[in-house]
Structures are given as structure tokens and as C-alpha cells.
Simulated scan of single mutants.
Amino acid sequence: MIQWKGVMPAVTTKFTDNDELDLDMFAVNIKAQLDAGVHGIVLGGTLGEASTLEDHEKRTLTTETVKLVNGKVPVLINIAEQTTKGAIAAAQKAQDDGATGLMMLPPMRYKAGDHEVVTYFKAVANSTDLPIMVYNNPVDYKIEVTLDMFDDLLKCDNIQAVKESTRDISNVTRIKNNFGDRLKIMTGVDTLALESLLMGADGWVAGLVCAFPAETVAIYELQKAGKIKEALEIYRWFLPLLELDINPKLVQNIKLAEVHTGIGTETVRAPRLPLSGAEREHVLSVIKTGIKNRPTLPDYKNL
């Protein structure tokens, strides 16, 4: 059972200088997330450089994270595959490796039609006991999972949540009106997070949380407790940093921010390269300004 609520970091994958998994730094970051009070961990998403990971690396990340969280929060791994067969195999491995649930994208590369997408999701859902969050991001992945498609998908009991990344804030209300609590909503866009939560989203699959875990969880807990003004104050401070997530180089941006908060390195896997030149200077100035003006947080864990 997964409680689809709260803040679930889409964590970055840490690499050593010789391009292997850096499990020591990975553990430092996961500990910081848990200490801040996150409600779940999502592995191998866009931020986790999923497309560059070998199968055995995904499995290592899953088993290591399951050990690190030690039952405190659910561990989800993203499925981003090109074939139905590959997706079913990935779901089976995730289950074998101790994952609590799956985040799942539509088929990769091939622009599948609506019926093909629904058939793909259902085939995977019917092959596993793990609960599934459908990642709906038509902006980046060019396939939209519509309300009509969800109507069909929800015949599978283990399709339980959506990572709502359409960028259309009114979609939160449409989902609530159509499905009530049957489809839980985890907002997936950092720059629309508080807005989505206030419209009724259940939680936030977050990006900048990788570098700023406490601030992210504080926003969620404050709005949940009805302290909107306090949540808004932190969110307004946070927005220039959150905008680093809505960028083709979000991985490099967020990893650079992790360096400056002491819980990461900026090593990425090629073809990605660390930021350089004017681009790097701009991102650094956003990070440094954010850190300089970092708000004092209330005791958000005991509201």
C-alpha cells in the first residue's frame, strides 16, 4: 500500500569521476531527504538520468535505496521502456528488488496512439502487484494520457495515481471532478507545485527538493495545515530556484544546486556535460542568491 501524498523527490543518480554509481554520495542525499521528512523516493526518472542507466544500475539503485529507507517511506522506480515486453520485465525486476511501487511513462520513442498507450499500461499493470503512478507529461514526452484514457486505465486496481505534468493547472480540478479520490494526484511541475496542492493535488513529485529538502517539505506541510501565507512566503523565495527544473538542463542545474547545499556532486553521465560559461554563471547566481536569502523555516514537522 502506498499513501499517495506528500513530497516524493525524483532523486538524481550520483556518479563517480570514472562514470560508475557513486553510492556513498547517493546515501548522503537520501539521508538528507529522509531527515527533512519526505514521504517517498522516486528513482530513475528524468532527473535520475534514466535513459543513460544500465539495467543492472537501476537494480542496484533500487536495492540500495530499499536498504537506506528501511521501510520508512515507499520506494518507486520509473519505467521508461520502448517495448511492452521490456516494461513488464522492468516491473518484475522492480518487484523482485523490493520496490514499493512504479512510476510509469507511456512507450518511449514510438508515438503510440491512445488505444496503444492504454493497452501498454494495462499489460504492465496486469503483470505486477505493485501500485502504479502514471507519469503524464505531454510537454516533454509528446503523449498525453487523457481523462477518457484514465477512465479505461482505472479498471486496473493497481493504477492508483498520476504524476500530473500537463502544465494545465485546471487539470487538477478536472481529475478530481471525474475520479474523486480514485486517482490520486501528485503534481510533477515544480513551478506549479503550490498552486496544484491548493487546487487539491495530494502530493508533489519534486525536483529542487534534491538540493533543498527541508524547504520543499515545509511548503507542503504548511499548506496542508492551512498556513497558506507562510507556505506562500517560502514558495516565493523558492521560485527562481524551482525554475531551474523547467529547463532542458534540469539535471545539470539541480546537481549544481546539490553541490552548494552539500548533498551532491555535479558529475553527470555523457552525453550530458556539466554546465560551463555564461550558462553556468547564470545558474550559479540563482543558486547563490537563493542560499543567501534562505528563509528560516518554522517547525513544520509539528504543525
Rank of each mutant, 00 (worst) to 15 (best):
L102D: 09
N158L: 12
N293V: 14
A32F: 03
N70L: 02
H115R: 13
R294L: 14
I77Q: 12
T128N: 10
L61Q: 04
S127P: 01
A270D: 05
I254P: 01
E49M: 12
Y110T: 06
D151P: 09
S51R: 10
E243W: 12
N78V: 11
A94S: 02
A80S: 13
P74D: 03
A231N: 07
L303F: 14
Q223W: 09
R269T: 05
E54Y: 15
S51D: 10
D202I: 00
I169F: 15
V75K: 01
W4S: 07
S276Q: 13
I234L: 08
V75C: 05
Q95V: 06
N136Q: 02
V251H: 00
D151A: 14
A193K: 04
V139H: 05
W4E: 08
F179G: 05
G264E: 00
P107W: 08
T83P: 05
D96K: 14
G203E: 02
K155D: 12
L183W: 08
N177E: 15
T60P: 07
Q82F: 11
L303A: 06
A10E: 00
L61H: 07
A218W: 10
T119W: 09
W237H: 10
M25D: 12
T119S: 14
F26M: 13
K249V: 03
A218M: 11
G262Q: 06
V283S: 01
V172I: 15
E20F: 13
L198R: 14
D157I: 06
G264H: 01
L76N: 07
V205G: 02
L53I: 07
P298R: 03
P131S: 09
K5T: 12
L303W: 09
V172E: 02
V38G: 00
T289F: 13
T267W: 04
L232Y: 11
V42K: 08
W4K: 06
V259K: 03
M104V: 03
G71I: 04
I254L: 15
E49G: 09
Q33S: 00
P248R: 00
L102Q: 10
M8W: 15
V145Q: 08
I143G: 00
A257L: 08
A214W: 07
V124G: 05
P295M: 09
H282E: 13
S165E: 14
G71R: 04
W4M: 10
H260L: 09
I254Q: 06
I228C: 03
K176I: 15
